[in-house]
Design a protein around this nucleic acid. Structure first.
Length: 345
DNA sequence: AAGTACCTCAACCGCCAATTG
DNA sequence: ACAATTGGCGGTTGAGGTACT
C-alpha cells in the first residue's frame, strides 16, 4: 500500500501536456480503448504514468466533453447538488453531462462559493449567513411520537428529528398544501454522518399540485405557485412543485429530495397519475408512494416494483404521515404537523 | 510602465477502496 | 490470506493570464 508506484518512477514527464502527447494518447485510446491505464503510456509511446494519462483523457481529451463556460442552469444545478451532496464532485459531475468533476470543483472554488456569499448564503451549509451568525437554536424540540403504529426495520429514527412544529409562513392556511422536510431548513443528521436532505433544504413550500420546472412536460399553469422560502437554493421556482416531482433519490446511506428525478422516475410517477387519486408521494422514488382521495387522509400506494427499498410496506387507507414523514413529507392541513424523520441504515 | 494581487484551471498529490496475483 | 497494484476521488498547487494600483 502507500503511495502510487508511479510517483517514484523517474524519467516520466510531468506538467502540461504537449499537443504531440495529446495526439498520441488520443490516437491510442480511440483505436484500442484505455483498458488498463498503467499499460497505456507504454503502448501509446508516452513518457507519462498511467494515472496522468487517465486524468488527461478524462479531463481534456474525452470526445464527449462539453467545452466552454457553464450556463446559468448548470451553475444553479451545481449549487443545488452541492447543497445535497457536499464536495462529492464526481457525483455532482455525474448529473452534468459533458462536465468533469475537476472543472466543477474549480468552478465552485473560484466562482460559485463567492456568488453564494454575495447572496448571503453560506456555501458550506447553504444556510443564510444571518441565520448562522445569530446562532439561533433551531434544533427540533423532542416531543412525543405521533400516533403512528407502523414501523419498519429498515429505518431508524433520527435523533432529535421528531417534533411538533407550527408552520408559520405567510401562506394561506390551505389544507391542500403539503410541506416536506423540517421547517426552518434544518438538516437531519444520521448517526453515521449521512443525512436526509428534505424539502427544508430546498426551502420550498409545496402545493399539492404543480410541476417540477426541470421537467417541463405536463406543466399545469393553473396550479398555485410554489412558495420559495428565504434561503432556498431554488430562487427561480415559478410553477408549483408536486412533492412527488421533487423526487427522492438515494445517496450513499441516505436519501435526498430534490429536483433530480430521472425521466424514468417521472414516467413511473405519471403512471400513477392515471388514478383518480391525487398522487403526491415522495416515496414513489423508493417505489412506493402516497395517494390521497379528495378530502381524505393520504394513504400509501405500495410496492411499485420488487426493488422497493420498502418492500414490506402494505397499502393502507387512512395512512397518516408515517412513511411519508420517513421520507420527509407530511400533511400540513392544520398548520400543525407531526414531524418524524427517519434515515435508512 | 511596472509591480502586485488576484483569478482560473490543468495537473499533481496523497489517500482510500477495490482488484489482482 | 496477504501484499502489491490500480483506479478513483477530493484537496492542493502553481503557471499563466488579467486586473488593479
Amino acid at each position: 500500500m502507500g503511495r502510487h508506484s508511479c510517483c517514484y518512477k523517474q524519467k516520466l514527464r510531468k506538467g502540461l501536456w504537449s499537443p504531440e502527447e495529446d495526439e498520441k494518447l488520443l490516437r491510442y485510446i480511440t483505436k484500442y480503448g484505455h483498458g488498463c491505464w498503467s499499460s497505456v503510456p507504454k503502448q501509446a509511446g508516452l513518457q507519462r504514468c498511467g494515472k496522468s494519462c487517465r486524468l488527461r483523457w478524462i479531463n481534456y481529451l474525452r470526445p464527449d466533453l462539453k467545452r466552454g463556460a457553464f450556463s446559468q442552469d448548470e451553475e444553479n444545478l451545481i449549487i443545488e447538488l452541492h447543497a445535497v451532496l457536499g464536495n462529492r464532485w464526481s457525483q455532482i459531475a455525474a448529473q452534468l453531462p459533458g462536465r468533469t468533476d475537476n472543472e466543477i470543483k474549480n468552478l465552485w472554488n473560484s466562482c460559485l462559493k463567492k456568488k453564494l456569499r454575495l447572496r448571503g448564503i453560506d456555501p458550506i451549509t447553504h444556510k443564510l449567513l444571518t441565520e448562522i451568525e445569530s446562532g439561533s437554536d433551531d434544533k427540533p424540540k423532542p416531543v412525543e411520537k405521533s400516533q403512528q403504529t407502523y414501523n419498519h426495520n429498515h429505518l431508524v429514527e433520527t435523533e432529535g428529528s421528531s417534533s411538533t412544529t407550527t408552520c408559520s409562513t405567510n401562506q394561506n392556511n390551505n389544507s391542500d398544501h403539503l410541506y416536506t422536510g423540517n421547517f426552518g431548513f434544518q438538516r437531519l443528521s444520521l448517526e453515521n454522518g449521512s443525512r436526509i436532505a428534505t424539502g427544508s433544504d430546498l426551502g420550498i413550500w409545496i402545493p399539492q399540485t404543480g410541476r417540477n420546472q426541470h421537467h417541463h412536460h405536463h406543466v399545469d399553469e393553473n396550479v398555485p405557485s410554489a412558495v420559495v422560502l428565504p434561503g432556498s437554493m431554488f430562487s427561480s421556482v415559478l410553477t408549483g412543485y408536486r412533492s412527488s416531482n421533487l423526487g427522492l433519490i438515494e445517496l450513499e446511506n441516505s436519501f435526498s429530495t430534490g429536483p433530480m428525478m430521472t425521466e424514468q422516475q417521472q414516467i413511473q410517477e405519471s403512471n400513477y397519475n392515471n388514478n383518480s387519486s391525487t398522487f403526491f408521494g415522495t416515496g414513489n422514488n423508493l417505489n412506493w408512494g402516497l395517494a390521497m382521495e379528495e378530502n381524505q387522509n393520504p394513504f400509501a400506494i405500495s410496492n411499485h416494483s420488487n426493488s422497493s427499498l420498502f418492500s414490506d410496506i402494505k397499502s393502507e387507507t387512512n395512512f397518516f404521515g408515517t412513511e411519508a414523514t420517513n421520507v420527509g413529507m407530511w400533511p400540513c392541513n392544520q398548520l400543525q404537523t407531526q414531524q418524524h424523520a427517519y434515515g435508512h441504515i
